[in-house]
Each structure stands twice: as structure tokens, then as C-alpha cells.
Design a protein around this nucleic acid. Structure first.
Lengths: 159, 159
DNA sequence: CTGCATCCAACTTGATACTG
DNA sequence: CAGTATCAAGTTGGATGCAG
């Protein structure tokens, strides 16, 4: 399947498109997204499903690693991330592959050589993550400041 | 603390700013973000911490609910989300409050009346989530299509 | 109405050992 | 090199009961 705009060639039960909201603005748009995020069609909600995919401990790092350094072998990526276990890198890469976000190329050699690379879809996701990461880099310290302050209050209550 | 640009008035150990990357482009920028997401300063990484905050099962829905409908009482928000338990809504709201993303206002009445509302920081986060949600709405079906196909392959292997 | 405390089942993760 | 298998420990979320 080549990359398509929207939902072409997809199963008919996946009928959520951006036509539903792109004409909306302000509060109405927010309400619409609340509904989109709070509704499941056949057990599936694209928003929550995609958030769940990048929500595990390692997916974002694997995507960034492949996005920043291009095609990488298993152990190259493992060493770049540093503290990931072999098992979790395997699990993470299998999930990303199943979602069409990365490709896995096996070279029939001894010892084996396996290379991973972002797909077009994976690059597209990484660009969205980039926007989010920029926000997090700018605003994260403020959030963490509040969080530490709140923890202090809790400690004071205990004491 | 009023909302500030960047890291003003924050503890000195939180020194990550966007000055480090905003001049970069393309691959170099991707590498920089890999490093930012893969580095911790005093156990803290803003990117991974913020991803972790929105990664639990209910935070995104709570933020969208308050973003779409404004100030809401506890049970109003609970009924809008629908299938959240009382315990998890309480936990979720306490976490968001501790991070400075929502305010909690108690009216000393019997029975009690408590209202929740996004802060400026919370609205800012929701706007970023909106961008991500738009991407997920457009591209989620394609990802889910791949995922279902991959699951089918796994079933075939078992059979 | 709002929320806390407790218990428990399910899921996630990391360590370790083994394999083609 | 690139995995797989297994198990122990930690975490999450839902159900339930109680309280101001």
C-alpha cells in the first residue's frame, strides 16, 4: 500500500476523516476533538491508539534515533539509546514495524545483519513529535517546577 | 508564579532551553532532539516527562474535556468522559493540578462544589495536543490498517 | 457531591540464560 | 549479531467500602 491522503483503500469501518473538523474553530473544534478522542468505532480510536503507541517507555527514542541517524543496525541503535535492554528494543521495533512506521531489512549473512529505517509514515510521525518536543523543551521546566513544588507540599503534609 | 517565556525564575538545574536547537535544521535538528530526549539532568528529561504525563489512560481526555467545555465540576467531567471511574478521575486531576495544567477551586458548601479549569499552561498544552490529534486523525487509520494486517500475519504463523 | 483507602487482577518491564 | 524464552518485580487501573 502506497501512502494515500486520508482513508483511501482503508477498511470501511475506519471512517474518521479530517473533513469533520477542519472547518471548525475555537471552542467548537475543541469539543469535536474531545468527542473524537472519547469515541471508539469497533474498539478503535485513532487518537488514543496513536498516543498509546508513542506512550511506552522507548518508542519515541527509537523513532528519534532512526530519524536522526537514518538506517541503523540493531546494535547501533541499542548503543545510541544506551540503557535499553535487548528485549525491550526488540519489542519496541516489532511494534513500530507492525504499525508501518519502520522497515526491517534482513541480510542473510552469518553473523546476521538487520537494518531498521523509518518509513514515510514514520518520518511524518517524527515531524509531529518534533513539534511536541519543542513545546516540551520550552514548557517542560515550568511544569516540572510546579510538580516539584507540589511534591514538597505533600511531604510537608506527611511531616 | 506567572507564565514566563522559557526558563526564567526556574531552578538553575533546569537549563534546557530552545536556544540549543532553534537554529538547527533537518538531520542535525533530529539528532539534537534525540540527544535531548535521551538525556536526563538530575533524573529529569522534559520531553520524556511531558510524554509520560499525557501517556496515562485518561489525561488527554480530561484536558480535552476541560478545553472543550471550560470550567467543569467533578461529576460533570466524569459524565462527559463516561467510562472513567471515580478513583481514576481523582488521580488524573490531581496529577494535572500538580503539574500546573489545571486549577482546582473548592466552594465551601454542603454538599461540596469543586470546579476544574485549564490554566494558561494547560491551554497551551492542549493546543499542542490538538496538532497531534489532527495528525492522528488523518494518519491513524493507515497505521491501524497496517497493524491489523500484521496481526493477521501473526495469526497465520500460529495456524 | 466529592473524594480517600484498600485490595487485587492485569499488564509492563528488566534480568538472565540460551540459540541460529 | 540479533534475537527468543522465562521469570521476578514493579506499576496501573478498576471495584468496593467509607467519610466529610
Amino acid at each position: 500500500m502506497t501512502k494515500q491522503e486520508g482513508t483511501a483503500t482503508l477498511p470501511s469501518y475506519l471512517t474518521v476523516t479530517n473533513a469533520d473538523f477542519e472547518h471548525l474553530t475555537g471552542t467548537e473544534k475543541n469539543k469535536k476533538f474531545f468527542e473524537l478522542a472519547n469515541t471508539t468505532k469497533n474498539q478503535i480510536c485513532p487518537i488514543r491508539d496513536i498516543v498509546a503507541r508513542i506512550s511506552d517507555k522507548w518508542s519515541v527514542l527509537a523513532i528519534y534515533g532512526l530519524g536522526g541517524y537514518g538506517k541503523l543496525r540493531f546494535n547501533e541503535l541499542k548503543h545510541k539509546i544506551g540503557d535499553i535492554s535487548q528485549r525491550m528494543l526488540t519489542v519496541t521495533l516489532r511494534n513500530l514495524e507492525a504499525d508501518g512506521l519502520i522497515t526491517r531489512t534482513i541480510y542473510p549473512q552469518v553473523p546476521p545483519r538487520v537494518e531498521y529505517e523509518l518509513t514515510e509514515l514514520g518520518h511524518s510521525l517524527m515531524q509531529q513529535l518534533q513539534l511536541f518536543a519543542e513545546w516540551a523543551t520550552k514548557n517542560g521546566p515550568e511544569i516540572i517546577y510546579y510538580r516539584e513544588k507540589a511534591n514538597k507540599v505533600i511531604k510537608d503534609r506527611i511531616a
